[in-house]
Amino acid sequence: MPPLYELRNLRRSFDGREVLHIDHLRVDEGELYALLGANGAGKSTLMRILAFLDSPSDGELFFRGELTQKRQEALHRQGVVFVPQFPVMFTGSLLYNVEYPMLLKNVPAAERKSRAMKLLDVVGLADLRKAPARHLSGGEAQRASIARALAAGAQVLFFDEPTANVDQRSTTEIIRLIRELWSSHGLTIGITTHNADIAGELCPRQIFLAGGRVVKRHILPGGRVAMPAKLSLSPSGRPCALLPPEALWGTEAAGRGAVLRGLSSVAAGVALRLSLTEGREEDTLLQDEESLALASALRLGDTLEVRVHGIHHSAREHDDGGVSF
């Protein structure tokens, strides 16, 4: 059986600037995967291409074993639904919005309404069916867009930062819904996020993007996330682990713990002293070819020093894998 997607040497450029370059990537039918990376890493661009809302500038994109052509995008788009970070709700009621995809296919009114109501029930928004859709909260809009995607007969679903603008309660609900869609409905689901904890909790597979390239892929047991961390020597000659720009997401919602777990996957068992560095120095050091050599030379019990934003943090990773600050 051919993979759902296969990308070969796929590139996307805007005004001559290359923002995406995927040498090879394969996504199978029924997978639940996360695209991880910092802002500008190319996650959304890749997702939009996979959802046939954008076309690659160069390279090959195979969909169900068939090489896709630009003029066939509308055909491939059927059953592939993209849910943006801030879902667009059309003017009208929530019920109208869920009915919308069925209106496009001229589904009879009675069947349309009954199916829309069932779907609203699934996402827990049946009570709001008459509410103006544009006045829904961020979490409600996300859930409404899930119902609308199901109404469109989605077999492949893409979520761009599904939990970025919602509270904790809605995040839990959205994660539950996505998991249920994957396990019960057998959909292929891709999400973009810069939250390693959510990706680890939800997705068995993570694809890391940095500078438009897939940098490292790890599926760790227990939902642990392997971060693409690079190590380098500091100008003073002391060992210094630098966080690449794509690692900065770890400092946001996921907290420093995620960063440390990532680093520890590169040099397992190493006790870390963490600080953060910013600016040109970091970019320069990132290019250092010695980074990989240093990573392999590290031994259990070594201490690393990382600078980000000039603030020093120290942490220790215990034998059981936990990290303490």
Partner: peptide, 26 residues
């Protein structure tokens, strides 16, 4: 008008003509 309006219509299965109609409606 939100530029993603047309894109949302397209991703929900609208043809180019149906997507344009949706934008006009909005």
């Amino acid at each position: 008008l939100d530029s993603r309006c047309r894109e949302t219509a397209l991703t929900l299965g609208a043809s180019a003509w149906q997507a344009n109609k949706t934008v006009l409606r909005e």
